[in-house]
Write a protein that binds this DNA or RNA. Structure first.
Lengths: 254, 254
DNA sequence: CGACTTATTGATGCACTTCAAGCGACGTGG
DNA sequence: CCACGTCGCTTGAAGTGCATCAATAAGTCG
């Protein structure tokens, strides 16, 4: 059941059988959470951590004027808030998109497992840092890419992340996000998201129907938005080489 | 000389004299780095960490088409890349804005100090998590705020962060960023940044002249952009209370 | 002082937002 | 089973906010 988590961690670090057993041991409180439900809210002082085993959730903020900004998508195998024990209180919300299977892990369990299994600890930190790298990529997305490239990039990322946890079949994946969710993720209006999706469909890059997203031509879609998966820091990434780019700055000593 | 770092850490955790001595001990390699110079580049496999003692630097990416996106500003007392030893290779660049005093800290020193001083370790992680929270706030900024609010919010953040490390005098702080830098940070054109600054000047909220930024009325500026410093997670923050907001979702169990 | 970078201002155009109406899918209750 | 309401998606029309281009002015550094 936690295979999503284990698969994800294995894309970062090589795990031993003991590691895997230890991970399987913590299913203490599995819960079904309905769609569109908050797991934690801004201001809360959290007492345990959430792990998504199935379904989709997101990290978001709401501004005083009602504007919502989604800052991350959580898919099976993702920790929502690894960091949560260090900082004092939540500065944002975490809520489900679809119905989810969520494990609540008390702080003690985390402390116990990290004390005993250094590889798992490393993999956990790796997760946290990859989450941050994804966040940076989202910022680049909004600041520097055109609307169609933004959406395309988001789809590329989701395809790859879902593939890592074995949730992609025939280039298709469940996609419970509404167009308004998408709009609040990439900083566009929902109307414009609709038009953008039409464009991507016209180009025969994707299909999105009845909450299933199909990537018709992954290579072309990646080329379309300049997708470079290096920021996901997967072990067996292809693009490990350094990219040539028109650097603006000198390097020290040049 | 590292007082910036110590002051910053003390805004998160209470440090002992021993902690402070340990921090002062690592000035191994202080370097003057000229303005507009990269410290690390995408693809590099870094061997040591950078700490800014004086000056300004930033984290950025450059897309194939030459578009630059700045993702973070570093001010005195900031670590540029605390995380760097865990992930394999850099997925972005770090470069100076102004001339900087930079300390390069070898991995070993970090390992040594964290092994011995748990409070410092905690404070280091705190730093990393606050950096991530700032990043989230930047995403909200770009996705959900108007251009003038974006700039105003950025200024509020900078004012507070600079104040923590004792770099604000008479509501003024050094501001070596060009308008193009600002534009690449908030996702606008440089022309529009210029017009936006004019507006903020007209409203008598700020003054920006000869690389010095003055906040004429901090409270009004905060109100103007809805600034809430909770995401900086400072110990003596005022707004520790929970905010009322028009939540969209139910909470579990409601 | 002269060369170069940075900032300002105006003019033009279009990409995106907003507003509004229609439509299909879905669920609920009569 | 159909009527109805809701929600999400689509499409059109209109307005505008921001980008782009371009030329001048101000500031900075050799």
């Amino acid at each position: 059941m936690q295979d999503a988590l284990i698969r994800k961690l294995e894309s970062y670090e090589e795990l031993t059988d003991a590691d895997r057993r230890a991970l399987r041991a913590f299913v203490p409180r599995l819960r079904e959470v309905p769609a569109r439900t908050d797991l934690i809210r801004e201001g809360d002082i959290p007492s345990n951590m959430h792990l998504i085993l199935d379904g989709f959730a997101c990290r978001y903020k709401v501004l005083p004027d009602g504007q919502r900004q989604i800052m991350a998508y959580f898919i099976p195998g993702d920790f929502c808030d690894l960091n949560v024990f260090i900082l004092d209180q939540m500065d944002h919300n975490i809520g489900t998109i679809s119905q989810c299977q969520v494990v609540e892990i008390p702080r003690k369990s985390i402390d116990a497992i990290t004390a005993q299994y250094p590889t798992i600890t490393r993999a956990f930190w790796w997760c946290a840092l990859v989450d941050e790298a994804v966040l940076r990529q989202w910022l680049v997305n909004m600041g520097a890419r055109s609307p169609d490239q933004r959406i395309a990039h988001l789809f590329c990322e989701l395809l790859l992340r879902m593939d890592v946890v074995g949730r992609v079949k025939d280039n298709s994946l469940p996609f419970p996000f509404t167009q308004t969710d998408l709009a609040d993720s990439v900083g566009l209006s929902d109307v414009h998201v609709s038009r953008t999706l039409r464009k991507l469909r016209r180009l025969e890059l994707i299909t999105l129907h009845r909450r299933v997203l199909t990537i018709l031509d992954a290579e072309q879609l990646k080329a379309y938005c300049g997708f470079n998966p290096n920021y996901l820091h997967l072990r067996n990434a292809r693009w490990s080489g350094r990219r040539q780019m028109p650097w603006l700055n000198r390097v020290q000593g040049e």
